[in-house]
Simulated scan of single mutants.
Amino acid sequence: MSSPDGQDCRGLRADAESNRRRIIAAAQQVFGERGVSAPLTEVADRAGVGIATLYRRFPTRKALVEEAFEDAFAGYDASADMALAEEDPWEAFAGLVERMGALQAENRGFTHLIQSSVPLGHRRDGRRERTYRKTVEVIDRARAAGAIRDDVTPEDLPVLSFALAGILEVTRDDLPDAWRRHVAYFLAGCRPEAPATLPPAPAPLHLQRAMLRSGRRRQQR
């Protein structure tokens, strides 16, 4: 079957799919290097397509971000489900924290994404919000069982994510597993027998502001 100008429609579809794959691969690379607020012109250049082609495939930044990190989103949500399925409250909490660290280590762009303010709409049916609620449930269950100290809060995990992002930035090439030691320190400090009194947990509003500022700084680099 041919288009009005004589081109084979299957060829057009193949070209469009090839462009889509190149754009997604380029977005993962650029967002990993510069954060999810990086210029889309840079993504198009890296993919070897024009900016108009990028926008035909992905009309908004949100659409491109969601597609580029679909697998990472799925892994993040699956990690929370695995934690909820674990009977032992400590193993559930520790396993979730370790898997979150592994996701950051495997996907640098996803590290930037979970710290960003890029609005993710209803296409993923509120997956990030649902995953957050699951994480809160894991923490609440561990606290109620006495498996972690009473002052551990859900806001501690985004702060850990900031710390891991910095560690990964410096050690990724030479010490790719250095982040695991920091996670182990964090988990040891969450044990109920940990003696030190913690400073107050960050307020959710202040944490959100910090994430916004972090995204803006990364965009300005």
Rank of each mutant, 00 (worst) to 15 (best):
residue 100 M to C: 12
residue 53 T to A: 13
residue 103 L to R: 04
residue 64 L to S: 07
residue 88 D to G: 05
residue 88 D to F: 02
residue 84 L to F: 07
residue 85 A to P: 06
residue 119 P to T: 01
residue 113 L to V: 03
residue 134 K to G: 03
residue 114 I to K: 02
residue 126 G to K: 11
residue 131 T to K: 00
residue 64 L to P: 13
residue 68 A to P: 09
residue 123 R to C: 01
residue 142 A to Q: 04
residue 132 Y to Q: 11
residue 127 R to V: 01
residue 70 E to A: 06
residue 95 G to I: 02
residue 59 P to C: 04
residue 68 A to G: 15
residue 93 F to P: 06
residue 74 A to T: 09
residue 81 D to R: 03
residue 134 K to A: 07
residue 89 P to Q: 04
residue 76 Y to R: 05
residue 133 R to Q: 09
residue 132 Y to M: 08
residue 87 E to V: 13
residue 101 G to Y: 08
residue 94 A to W: 15
residue 63 A to S: 08
residue 111 T to L: 15
residue 86 E to H: 13
residue 83 A to M: 09
residue 80 A to E: 04
residue 119 P to W: 05
residue 135 T to R: 10
residue 117 S to R: 15
residue 116 S to R: 07
residue 139 I to F: 14
residue 73 F to P: 00
residue 72 A to W: 13
residue 124 R to F: 04
residue 64 L to G: 04
residue 67 E to W: 09
residue 136 V to N: 08
residue 69 F to D: 02
residue 60 T to E: 10
residue 132 Y to D: 04
residue 132 Y to N: 06
residue 132 Y to P: 04
residue 60 T to F: 10
residue 57 R to V: 03
residue 134 K to I: 05
residue 60 T to K: 10
residue 74 A to H: 12
residue 130 R to V: 01
residue 126 G to Q: 03
residue 56 R to D: 02
residue 97 V to Y: 12
residue 73 F to Q: 11
residue 54 L to D: 05
residue 78 A to R: 08
residue 67 E to V: 13
residue 99 R to D: 15
residue 116 S to C: 01
residue 54 L to T: 03
residue 138 V to A: 02
residue 137 E to K: 14
residue 113 L to P: 01
residue 94 A to I: 08
residue 93 F to A: 12
residue 88 D to V: 05
residue 108 R to T: 15
residue 133 R to V: 08
residue 104 Q to E: 13
residue 54 L to V: 03
residue 121 G to M: 02
residue 89 P to D: 06
residue 79 S to V: 02
residue 95 G to F: 05
residue 120 L to S: 04
residue 129 E to K: 13
residue 120 L to R: 07
residue 104 Q to Y: 14
residue 113 L to C: 03
residue 98 E to T: 14
residue 57 R to Q: 13
residue 82 M to L: 15
residue 103 L to I: 14
residue 108 R to D: 15
residue 129 E to C: 08
residue 136 V to R: 07
residue 70 E to V: 03
residue 69 F to T: 00
residue 79 S to I: 06
residue 63 A to R: 09
residue 79 S to D: 05
residue 116 S to L: 05
residue 126 G to Y: 05
residue 96 L to R: 12
residue 123 R to M: 01
residue 107 N to A: 00
residue 69 F to P: 01
residue 84 L to N: 01
residue 68 A to M: 14
residue 140 D to H: 15
residue 142 A to C: 06
residue 125 D to S: 08
residue 81 D to I: 05
residue 55 Y to C: 01
residue 79 S to H: 07
residue 62 K to L: 07
residue 69 F to R: 01
residue 95 G to W: 00
